[in-house]
Design a protein around this nucleic acid. Structure first.
Length: 454
RNA sequence: GUGAUUGUAGCUCAGCUGGUUAGAGCACUGGAUUGUGGUUCCGGGGGUCGUGGGUUCGAGUCCCAUCAUUCACCCCA
């Protein structure tokens, strides 16, 4: 027996039925992006590892797929290199490219490389797959599509507001009820400063990010385990537990953070964004969530995360502001902000909640049965006319068994089958069969086109 | 990287405390019906039971190893 074929862990094939639904998501997202004035770009699947490494935190580096060098790379190694037992270090000798991990870092690289061609602020969108060497599980894949929108070269907080508008517009169109959590890395930095652990922002935020998942005690235990001083943890408690509506939260936070310059700036930014949002007619709910941290290292200002309300799924969209990303590549003082929509998770949510509209799933609308050479010649002209009128039409390629042709139409869920034999040709009519009701009648091509196009 | 779970037909699975020739549904295919599908009826093909070893008179079933899957943790879209 032939070897059973398979595909790598965490990757998937997409059947036509699935692709139609996926394209519905991509089309919707792309349409909204364009509506807000964003322009498309693409970047390679592979980047130089030097571009990717160190941008996503320790965990991110571990999850990068590395591409083996071509050629006899082993022969080029010296004895010391060959003797390396540390796999990560050894990898740097035999691999200098990696599959991209997200779209933001390649975008920053793109901006730096093309800075002379770009007019700032640059609003771009990018819909491409990314790869992560994670253990797959529900809603987590090793190859998945991100749909990024970013504005780079503008500090204005209006950009953050626009991103929330885009989030609202997209999920409104897709019919997903969402909740947008907003926070600010500067607030988190301020909190870390106030409690006397300014260098531990990441550990602190990652721990409190788990609050609603594992509870307060477990969070405190994790903080202690990470080496955060006890009095610092104690100071953190009132902040973590800060509840209530925004109007109450902000004054309290201002009091807590008053001695932290960065914290106060974060608060001001967040308040400005929310003053804008308050006046807008948004369907999505949005909140200030101090426990929102986001693991990616490069965020410096506002951070966002979107969750679907009615589904058990991780975040379906996330992002934030990054001030220094282009600086790493040699173009300082260019701040960017953007969010990324996780198409695969959005698909899973929509599938679970059965949100794909029937109208988005139209394939072939009418199929012409094939009775032989002369009939096919005649039908070929007819399908051409239908196609010119924008109707999805096909002619069955093989003449012969009607059963086979009808089952084909049936399995493709084609609603109408046109039967044109000798008598129809003589009358210049076609027999149109409705596959749902089983009814059939004779009509002219002109009438047919009219009916399909209204 | 950690902890569980499951591997039997193309797919979803059944197969009892080990016992003759390993089953079902779906899918595919042929016919009933050579200008009519989806429903019905009859027939057909398709399996090294994930892989390797062990226990046994005998292993799909028990044991060990290994690979793969799914789920959770870490982290994330």
């Amino acid at each position: 027996m032939a070897q059973k074929p398979s595909i790598p862990k965490g990757t998937r094939d997409f059947s036509p039925e699935v692709m139609i639904k996926r394209n519905y998501i991509f089309d919707t997202i792309r349409e909204v992006f364009k509506l807000y004035g964003y322009q498309p770009i693409e970047t390679p699947a592979m980047e130089n590892l030097s571009t990717l490494m160190g941008k996503y935190g320790e965990e991110g580096d571990r999850l990068l797929f590395k591409v083996l060098n071509s050629g006899e790379f082993l022969g080029k190694l010296n004895e010391d290199q060959k003797a390396t037992t540390d796999a990560n270090k050894f990898a740097t000798f035999i691999s200098e490219k990696g599959l991209k991990y997200d779209l933001t870092v390649p975008f920053a690289r793109y901006v730096v490389q093309h800075q002379n061609e770009i007019t700032f602020p640059f609003k771009r969108y990018q819909i491409q797959p990314v790869w992560r060497a994670d253990r797959p599980q529900k809603g987590r894949y090793r190859e998945f599509y991100q749909c990024d929108v970013d504005v780079i070269g503008s500090d204005a907080l209006l950009n953050e507001v626009e991103l929330v508008l885009i989030i609202d517009a997209i999920f409104r169109r897709l019919g997903i009820e969402t909740e947008v959590k907003i926070n600010n890395r500067k607030i988190l930095a301020g909190i870390a400063e106030i409690i006397g652990e300014p260098d531990r922002i990441i550990d602190i935020t990652i721990a409190i990010d788990k609050l609603d998942k594992i509870g307060l005690e477990a969070v405190n235990a994790e903080l202690a385990e990470k080496g955060i001083q006890k009095d610092a943890i104690d100071k953190l408690q009132p902040i973590i537990l800060l509840e209530g509506i925004l109007k109450e939260k902000f004054p309290k936070l201002m009091e807590i953070l008053q001695d932290s310059e960065i914290g106060m700036r974060g608060l001001e930014e967040t308040m400005t964004i929310m003053k804008y949002l308050k006046e807008l007619d948004l369907k999505t709910h949005w909140t200030l969530d101090l426990t929102l941290a986001r693991g990616l290292n490069y965020y410096t200002g506002a951070i966002f995360e979107v969750k679907a309300k009615d589904a058990q799924m991780g975040s379906i969209c996330g992002g934030g502001r990054y001030d220094d990303l282009t600086g790493i590549f040699g173009l300082p003082n260019v701040s960017g902000v953007g969010v990324s929509f996780g198409a695969d998770r959005i698909f899973d949510v929509m599938n679970e909640l059965d949100l794909f509209p029937e109208s988005a799933q139209i394939g072939t609308q009418i199929m012409f049965a094939n009775f032989g050479f002369k009939e096919a010649q005649y039908c070929l002209k007819a399908v051409t006319r239908l196609r010119q009128a924008g109707i999805n039409a096909e002619l069955f390629p093989d003449s012969g068994r009607m059963k086979k042709q009808m089952s084909y139409a049936d399995s493709k869920k084609i609603r109408f089958v046109a039967l044109v034999g000798e008598s129809e040709m003589n009358e210049n009519l076609i027999t149109l069969k409705n596959m749902e009701s089983g009814d059939q009648r004779k009509i002219s091509i002109e009438e047919l086109i009219k009916e399909f196009t209204y």
